[in-house]
Amino acid sequence: MAHLNQVQLARRWSLSPRTLERWRWRDQGPRYLKVGGRVVYRLEDVEAFERASARQPEATLRSGGTL
């Protein structure tokens, strides 16, 4: 099973690692694990969060089109 640490996920999403810390503090963002005091994200949880966060453009919705 693949894991990403906070810095790797921040790079993947072009975010500050502090943003991920804030999200954890607010119970937002993808699921994470604390292993020996370290925070890691399972790749499958990251990908599930990305799918759940995907938005369809409004113009496509208005025209009745599909992606």
Rank of each mutant, 00 (worst) to 15 (best):
L43S: 06
A59H: 11
V46R: 10
L33Y: 09
A10G: 05
S53W: 05
L67S: 08
R55K: 14
G29W: 00
G64K: 08
W23G: 01
Q8G: 11
E50A: 15
T60G: 06
L43V: 15
A54E: 14
R18Q: 14
A52K: 15
N5S: 10
L20Y: 02
R18T: 11
P30D: 07
Q6V: 14
H3S: 04
R22C: 05
P30V: 00
E47Y: 00
L4E: 07
A54P: 01
R38L: 14
M1A: 09
P17H: 09
G65Q: 12
V40P: 02
P57T: 05
W23P: 03
L9H: 01
L15P: 00
P30Y: 03
D27L: 10
R51S: 12
E21L: 09
R31N: 13
N5K: 10
V35N: 07
R42G: 06
G64S: 05
A59E: 12
W25P: 00
G37P: 08
E21P: 00
E58P: 04
A54N: 08
V46E: 01
V46Y: 10
S16N: 15
W23M: 14
H3Y: 13
G29M: 02
L9S: 01
A2E: 09
R12E: 12
P17E: 06
P57R: 14
L33S: 14
A2H: 06
E21M: 08
S53R: 14
R12C: 02
V46D: 01
L15C: 05
Q6H: 01
T60P: 00
R26E: 13
V39P: 02
A2V: 04
Q56H: 06
Y41M: 03
Q6F: 01
M1I: 05
V39I: 15
L9K: 03
R31H: 10
V39L: 07
H3I: 00
D45H: 13
Q28T: 05
V40R: 13
E58I: 07
G29C: 04
N5T: 10
E21Y: 09
F49A: 11
G65D: 10
S63N: 10
G65I: 03
L4P: 02
A52R: 15
A59Q: 10
A54F: 13
E47K: 11
R51E: 12
F49H: 15
R42H: 03
V7E: 12
R22P: 00
